[in-house]
Design a protein around this nucleic acid. Structure first.
Lengths: 148, 148
DNA sequence: TATTGTTATACTCTATAACTATA
DNA sequence: TATAGTTATAGAGTATAACAATA
Protein backbone atom coordinates (compact mmCIF):
# COMPACT_ATOMS: atom_id res chain seq x y z
CA UNK A 1 0.00 0.00 0.00
CA UNK A 2 2.07 2.93 1.26
CA UNK A 3 -0.40 5.41 2.64
CA UNK A 4 2.13 8.16 3.36
CA UNK A 5 4.01 9.94 0.60
CA UNK A 6 6.84 11.24 2.74
CA UNK A 7 7.94 10.14 6.16
CA UNK A 8 8.02 12.90 8.74
CA UNK A 9 11.67 13.28 9.63
CA UNK A 10 13.33 14.68 12.71
CA UNK A 11 16.45 16.35 11.33
CA UNK A 12 17.78 17.23 14.78
CA UNK A 13 20.79 19.57 14.60
CA UNK A 14 21.04 19.09 10.83
CA UNK A 15 18.35 21.77 10.46
CA UNK A 16 20.84 24.47 11.32
CA UNK A 17 24.18 22.79 10.88
CA UNK A 18 26.33 25.30 9.00
CA UNK A 19 28.09 22.73 6.83
CA UNK A 20 24.96 20.80 5.91
CA UNK A 21 22.86 23.85 5.05
CA UNK A 22 25.72 25.44 3.16
CA UNK A 23 26.20 22.26 1.13
CA UNK A 24 22.52 21.92 0.23
CA UNK A 25 22.33 25.60 -0.76
CA UNK A 26 25.50 25.38 -2.85
CA UNK A 27 24.13 22.37 -4.70
CA UNK A 28 20.89 24.25 -5.43
CA UNK A 29 22.83 27.22 -6.80
CA UNK A 30 25.09 24.99 -8.93
CA UNK A 31 21.97 23.19 -10.17
CA UNK A 32 20.60 26.49 -11.47
CA UNK A 33 24.01 27.36 -12.88
CA UNK A 34 24.17 24.03 -14.70
CA UNK A 35 20.74 24.50 -16.24
CA UNK A 36 21.63 28.05 -17.26
CA UNK A 37 24.79 26.91 -19.06
CA UNK A 38 23.59 23.53 -20.32
CA UNK A 39 23.54 24.75 -23.93
CA UNK A 40 27.08 26.17 -23.71
CA UNK A 41 28.33 23.09 -21.87
CA UNK A 42 30.11 25.33 -19.39
CA UNK A 43 30.87 24.08 -15.91
CA UNK A 44 31.43 26.35 -12.92
CA UNK A 45 35.19 25.85 -13.11
CA UNK A 46 35.24 26.76 -16.83
CA UNK A 47 33.27 29.91 -16.08
CA UNK A 48 35.67 31.02 -13.36
CA UNK A 49 38.72 30.32 -15.54
CA UNK A 50 37.40 32.31 -18.51
CA UNK A 51 36.48 35.15 -16.16
CA UNK A 52 39.91 35.28 -14.53
CA UNK A 53 41.75 35.17 -17.86
CA UNK A 54 39.50 37.88 -19.29
CA UNK A 55 40.36 40.23 -16.44
CA UNK A 56 43.98 39.13 -16.05
CA UNK A 57 45.35 38.31 -19.50
CA UNK A 58 48.84 36.86 -19.52
CA UNK A 59 48.81 35.19 -16.13
CA UNK A 60 50.69 31.93 -15.78
CA UNK A 61 48.65 28.72 -15.73
CA UNK A 62 49.73 28.04 -12.18
CA UNK A 63 48.69 31.53 -11.07
CA UNK A 64 45.17 31.11 -12.42
CA UNK A 65 44.96 27.64 -10.89
CA UNK A 66 46.11 28.85 -7.50
CA UNK A 67 43.76 31.84 -7.56
CA UNK A 68 40.85 29.45 -8.01
CA UNK A 69 42.03 26.79 -5.58
CA UNK A 70 42.52 24.24 -8.36
CA UNK A 71 45.59 22.03 -8.33
CA UNK A 72 47.83 22.61 -11.29
CA UNK A 73 47.69 18.94 -12.30
CA UNK A 74 43.90 19.09 -12.56
CA UNK A 75 44.03 22.48 -14.21
CA UNK A 76 45.69 21.12 -17.34
CA UNK A 77 42.55 19.33 -18.55
CA UNK A 78 40.43 22.43 -17.95
CA UNK A 79 42.73 24.58 -20.09
CA UNK A 80 42.93 21.78 -22.68
CA UNK A 81 39.15 21.87 -22.96
CA UNK A 82 38.94 25.64 -23.32
CA UNK A 83 41.83 25.68 -25.79
CA UNK A 84 40.16 22.88 -27.75
CA UNK A 85 37.06 25.06 -28.07
CA UNK A 86 39.26 27.93 -29.26
CA UNK A 87 38.28 30.12 -26.30
CA UNK A 88 41.68 30.26 -24.61
CA UNK A 89 45.21 30.39 -25.92
CA UNK A 90 48.44 29.23 -24.31
CA UNK A 91 51.48 31.34 -25.18
CA UNK A 92 54.96 30.28 -24.12
CA UNK A 93 56.66 33.09 -22.25
CA UNK A 94 59.69 34.62 -24.04
CA UNK A 95 61.52 35.32 -20.79
CA UNK A 96 60.85 31.96 -19.11
CA UNK A 97 60.29 29.07 -21.48
CA UNK A 98 58.70 26.97 -18.74
CA UNK A 99 55.61 29.09 -18.31
CA UNK A 100 52.43 29.13 -20.34
CA UNK A 101 50.74 32.53 -20.31
CA UNK A 102 46.97 32.40 -20.80
CA UNK A 103 44.88 34.67 -23.01
CA UNK A 104 41.38 34.69 -24.42
CA UNK A 105 41.14 34.26 -28.17
CA UNK A 106 38.94 36.72 -30.11
CA UNK A 107 36.24 34.03 -30.02
CA UNK A 108 36.90 33.68 -26.30
CA UNK A 109 36.32 37.40 -25.74
CA UNK A 110 33.04 37.20 -27.60
CA UNK A 111 32.10 34.05 -25.70
CA UNK A 112 32.91 35.77 -22.40
CA UNK A 113 30.55 38.64 -23.18
CA UNK A 114 27.66 36.26 -23.85
CA UNK A 115 28.64 34.15 -20.88
CA UNK A 116 28.30 37.14 -18.59
CA UNK A 117 24.77 37.79 -19.82
CA UNK A 118 23.77 34.22 -19.04
CA UNK A 119 25.55 34.43 -15.72
CA UNK A 120 23.82 37.67 -14.76
CA UNK A 121 20.41 36.11 -15.37
CA UNK A 122 21.42 33.22 -13.12
CA UNK A 123 22.84 35.48 -10.45
CA UNK A 124 19.76 37.72 -10.53
CA UNK A 125 17.61 34.65 -9.85
CA UNK A 126 19.78 33.82 -6.83
CA UNK A 127 19.60 37.40 -5.56
CA UNK A 128 15.84 37.39 -5.94
CA UNK A 129 15.59 34.14 -3.99
CA UNK A 130 17.72 35.69 -1.25
CA UNK A 131 15.43 38.70 -1.05
CA UNK A 132 17.44 41.39 -2.81
CA UNK A 133 20.93 42.78 -3.23
CA UNK A 134 21.24 43.72 0.42
CA UNK A 135 20.50 40.16 1.52
CA UNK A 136 23.08 38.96 -1.03
CA UNK A 137 25.68 41.33 0.40
CA UNK A 138 24.93 40.10 3.89
CA UNK A 139 25.28 36.47 2.76
CA UNK A 140 28.62 37.13 1.07
CA UNK A 141 29.85 38.99 4.15
CA UNK A 142 28.96 36.02 6.35
CA UNK A 143 30.31 33.20 4.16
CA UNK A 144 33.56 35.09 3.63
CA UNK A 145 34.20 34.83 7.36
CA UNK A 146 34.21 31.05 6.97
CA UNK A 147 36.75 31.14 4.16
CA UNK A 148 39.18 33.64 5.67
CA UNK B 1 64.43 34.40 -9.37
CA UNK B 2 60.66 34.86 -9.09
CA UNK B 3 60.41 38.20 -7.28
CA UNK B 4 56.65 38.07 -6.59
CA UNK B 5 55.13 35.45 -4.34
CA UNK B 6 51.56 35.88 -5.49
CA UNK B 7 50.19 37.54 -8.59
CA UNK B 8 47.67 40.27 -7.89
CA UNK B 9 44.43 38.99 -9.31
CA UNK B 10 41.33 40.81 -10.46
CA UNK B 11 38.52 38.47 -9.48
CA UNK B 12 35.85 40.59 -11.16
CA UNK B 13 32.33 39.41 -10.26
CA UNK B 14 33.70 36.23 -8.67
CA UNK B 15 34.32 38.28 -5.51
CA UNK B 16 30.64 38.27 -4.71
CA UNK B 17 29.21 35.56 -6.91
CA UNK B 18 26.82 33.64 -4.69
CA UNK B 19 27.69 30.20 -6.07
CA UNK B 20 31.45 30.73 -5.98
CA UNK B 21 31.58 32.15 -2.47
CA UNK B 22 29.16 29.54 -1.19
CA UNK B 23 31.29 26.78 -2.69
CA UNK B 24 34.54 28.07 -1.22
CA UNK B 25 32.94 28.51 2.21
CA UNK B 26 31.39 25.04 2.11
CA UNK B 27 34.76 23.52 1.27
CA UNK B 28 36.35 25.36 4.20
CA UNK B 29 33.67 24.06 6.58
CA UNK B 30 33.98 20.50 5.26
CA UNK B 31 37.74 20.79 5.62
CA UNK B 32 37.34 21.54 9.32
CA UNK B 33 34.76 18.76 9.59
CA UNK B 34 37.16 16.30 7.98
CA UNK B 35 39.97 17.23 10.35
CA UNK B 36 37.63 16.97 13.33
CA UNK B 37 36.53 13.46 12.36
CA UNK B 38 39.78 12.18 10.87
CA UNK B 39 40.33 9.80 13.80
CA UNK B 40 36.81 8.36 13.55
CA UNK B 41 37.02 8.16 9.76
CA UNK B 42 33.57 9.72 9.53
CA UNK B 43 32.54 11.59 6.42
CA UNK B 44 29.80 14.21 6.34
CA UNK B 45 27.35 11.77 4.75
CA UNK B 46 28.05 9.16 7.48
CA UNK B 47 27.46 11.78 10.14
CA UNK B 48 24.12 12.81 8.70
CA UNK B 49 22.97 9.19 8.31
CA UNK B 50 23.84 8.26 11.91
CA UNK B 51 22.11 11.42 13.13
CA UNK B 52 18.91 10.75 11.17
CA UNK B 53 18.72 7.11 12.28
CA UNK B 54 19.34 8.10 15.90
CA UNK B 55 16.40 10.49 15.86
CA UNK B 56 14.19 8.40 13.56
CA UNK B 57 14.80 4.74 14.36
CA UNK B 58 13.02 2.30 12.08
CA UNK B 59 12.88 4.43 8.96
CA UNK B 60 13.21 2.65 5.63
CA UNK B 61 16.55 2.92 3.81
CA UNK B 62 14.92 4.82 1.00
CA UNK B 63 13.33 7.29 3.42
CA UNK B 64 16.66 8.15 5.03
CA UNK B 65 18.29 8.41 1.61
CA UNK B 66 15.58 10.72 0.30
CA UNK B 67 15.65 12.89 3.41
CA UNK B 68 19.36 13.49 2.83
CA UNK B 69 19.17 13.90 -0.95
CA UNK B 70 21.18 10.74 -1.55
CA UNK B 71 20.11 8.35 -4.29
CA UNK B 72 19.11 4.95 -2.98
CA UNK B 73 21.64 3.19 -5.21
CA UNK B 74 24.49 5.20 -3.68
CA UNK B 75 23.04 4.87 -0.21
CA UNK B 76 23.62 1.11 -0.13
CA UNK B 77 27.40 1.46 0.23
CA UNK B 78 27.03 4.05 2.99
CA UNK B 79 24.82 1.72 5.04
CA UNK B 80 27.13 -1.20 4.24
CA UNK B 81 30.00 0.78 5.74
CA UNK B 82 28.13 1.73 8.90
CA UNK B 83 26.79 -1.80 9.31
CA UNK B 84 30.30 -3.18 8.79
CA UNK B 85 31.47 -1.01 11.70
CA UNK B 86 28.57 -2.33 13.80
CA UNK B 87 27.06 1.14 14.20
CA UNK B 88 23.87 0.56 12.21
CA UNK B 89 21.60 -2.46 11.85
CA UNK B 90 19.30 -3.39 8.96
CA UNK B 91 16.11 -5.18 10.04
CA UNK B 92 13.76 -6.66 7.47
CA UNK B 93 10.25 -5.32 8.05
CA UNK B 94 7.69 -7.96 9.18
CA UNK B 95 4.85 -6.26 7.32
CA UNK B 96 6.70 -5.59 4.06
CA UNK B 97 9.52 -7.97 3.32
CA UNK B 98 11.00 -5.62 0.76
CA UNK B 99 11.99 -2.90 3.18
CA UNK B 100 15.05 -2.66 5.38
CA UNK B 101 14.35 -0.67 8.55
CA UNK B 102 17.40 1.08 9.99
CA UNK B 103 18.42 1.24 13.65
CA UNK B 104 21.51 2.16 15.62
CA UNK B 105 23.19 -0.71 17.42
CA UNK B 106 24.10 -0.20 21.11
CA UNK B 107 27.62 0.62 19.91
CA UNK B 108 26.05 2.99 17.39
CA UNK B 109 24.16 4.83 20.14
CA UNK B 110 27.38 5.24 22.10
CA UNK B 111 29.23 6.31 18.98
CA UNK B 112 26.52 8.87 18.22
CA UNK B 113 26.92 10.47 21.64
CA UNK B 114 30.66 10.90 21.17
CA UNK B 115 30.13 12.00 17.61
CA UNK B 116 27.90 14.83 18.76
CA UNK B 117 30.60 16.10 21.12
CA UNK B 118 33.12 16.21 18.30
CA UNK B 119 30.54 17.82 16.05
CA UNK B 120 29.66 20.48 18.60
CA UNK B 121 33.31 21.50 18.88
CA UNK B 122 33.45 21.78 15.10
CA UNK B 123 30.19 23.70 14.91
CA UNK B 124 31.25 26.06 17.70
CA UNK B 125 34.39 26.90 15.71
CA UNK B 126 32.22 27.74 12.70
CA UNK B 127 29.88 29.87 14.81
CA UNK B 128 32.84 31.71 16.27
CA UNK B 129 34.20 32.39 12.80
CA UNK B 130 30.81 33.73 11.78
CA UNK B 131 30.74 36.09 14.76
CA UNK B 132 28.31 34.37 17.11
CA UNK B 133 25.03 32.48 17.20
CA UNK B 134 23.04 35.38 15.84
CA UNK B 135 25.24 35.59 12.75
CA UNK B 136 24.86 31.82 12.34
CA UNK B 137 21.06 32.12 12.52
CA UNK B 138 21.16 34.87 9.92
CA UNK B 139 23.34 32.75 7.64
CA UNK B 140 21.04 29.72 7.94
CA UNK B 141 18.02 31.92 7.26
CA UNK B 142 19.64 33.25 4.09
CA UNK B 143 20.97 29.97 2.66
CA UNK B 144 17.63 28.26 3.30
CA UNK B 145 16.05 30.68 0.86
CA UNK B 146 18.33 29.28 -1.83
CA UNK B 147 17.33 25.69 -1.09
CA UNK B 148 13.55 26.19 -0.84
C1' DT C 1 2.44 -3.30 -12.44
C1' DA C 2 5.01 -0.70 -8.89
C1' DT C 3 8.34 -0.43 -5.14
C1' DT C 4 12.68 -1.64 -2.30
C1' DG C 5 17.00 -2.74 -2.17
C1' DT C 6 20.78 -4.00 -4.86
C1' DT C 7 24.52 -4.42 -8.49
C1' DA C 8 27.05 -2.65 -12.19
C1' DT C 9 28.81 1.06 -14.50
C1' DA C 10 30.30 5.52 -15.97
C1' DC C 11 31.44 10.21 -15.33
C1' DT C 12 33.14 14.14 -12.67
C1' DC C 13 36.03 16.06 -9.17
C1' DT C 14 39.93 15.85 -6.43
C1' DA C 15 44.56 14.30 -4.57
C1' DT C 16 49.38 12.50 -5.13
C1' DA C 17 53.48 11.06 -7.29
C1' DA C 18 56.60 11.28 -10.83
C1' DC C 19 58.31 12.87 -15.21
C1' DT C 20 60.28 16.79 -18.71
C1' DA C 21 62.08 21.00 -19.72
C1' DT C 22 63.65 24.72 -18.17
C1' DA C 23 65.65 28.05 -14.74
C1' DT D 1 68.27 22.41 -6.90
C1' DA D 2 63.80 24.41 -7.73
C1' DT D 3 59.80 25.54 -10.65
C1' DA D 4 56.00 25.09 -14.50
C1' DG D 5 53.55 22.19 -16.88
C1' DT D 6 52.30 17.64 -17.71
C1' DT D 7 50.96 12.62 -17.31
C1' DA D 8 49.19 8.81 -14.88
C1' DT D 9 46.50 7.08 -11.44
C1' DA D 10 43.50 6.35 -7.61
C1' DG D 11 39.76 7.73 -4.61
C1' DA D 12 35.59 10.04 -3.63
C1' DG D 13 30.94 11.50 -5.03
C1' DT D 14 27.18 11.15 -8.08
C1' DA D 15 23.99 9.57 -11.90
C1' DT D 16 21.54 5.88 -14.64
C1' DA D 17 19.96 1.43 -15.97
C1' DA D 18 18.66 -3.02 -14.90
C1' DC D 19 17.74 -6.92 -11.90
C1' DA D 20 15.45 -9.92 -7.90
C1' DA D 21 12.24 -10.08 -4.37
C1' DT D 22 8.07 -8.58 -2.88
C1' DA D 23 3.83 -5.94 -2.88
Amino acid sequence: MGTRRHAIINYSVLSDAVGYRLRRAQLAVFQDFGESFAAEGLRPADFSVVLIIKHNPGLKQSEVAEALGIQRANFVAIVDGLEGRDLVERRKSETDRRVQALFLTPLGEQFADNMMKTWKAHEDRMIEKLGGAQARDELIRLVNRLTE
